[in-house]
């Protein structure tokens, strides 16, 4: 039951991230290699979440790995981390775009001002 909650909370975030990524790629807003890397990352997370229950069963009876029961706290913590990752990646991209925009703006203004000063 707890694993269903884990999947139910995290899958929507991962699906939104993947759809967002595909949209950016189709609109030409992201380079091919960066798209591939991020797609691989989100798909890996998706598989990890979906297969967490069978993976847990595999490690549960192995003394060396000593896995404990998944708690509700663990579920919310995992969901929080995945959500923050998604937000962080998007924010970083926006910050980078703003930096480039501001720098180009500063450049163009400086050139225009110097050309006006020449006249």
């Amino acid at each position: 039951m707890r694993y269903l909650i884990l999947i139910a909370l995290n899958l929507p975030i991962i699906f939104i991230a993947i759809i967002n990524l595909i949209t950016k790629h189709k609109l030409g807003k992201i380079q091919k290699n960066r798209f591939r890397f991020r797609m691989f990352f989100w798909c890996f997370l998706l598989i990890f979440i979906v297969l967490s229950f069978p993976a847990y069963n595999m490690v549960y009876n192995r003394p060396i790995l000593d896995a404990v029961d998944l708690s509700l706290f663990d579920i919310f913590q995992t969901t929080g981390i995945i959500f923050l990752l998604y937000a962080l990646i998007n924010q970083r991209q926006k910050t980078e775009q703003n930096e480039i925009y501001l720098r180009d703006l500063h450049q163009e203004i400086s050139i225009l001002l110097s050309e006006n000063a020449k006249k």
Partner: peptide, 25 residues
Amino acid sequence: TTVISHILNSGSGSATATGLSYAQQ
């Protein structure tokens, strides 16, 4: 000489980019 003055100090990378952008234009 032609002088392009940056409004803010932006670093040598930005200054070089401005100069080369002007040259390209």
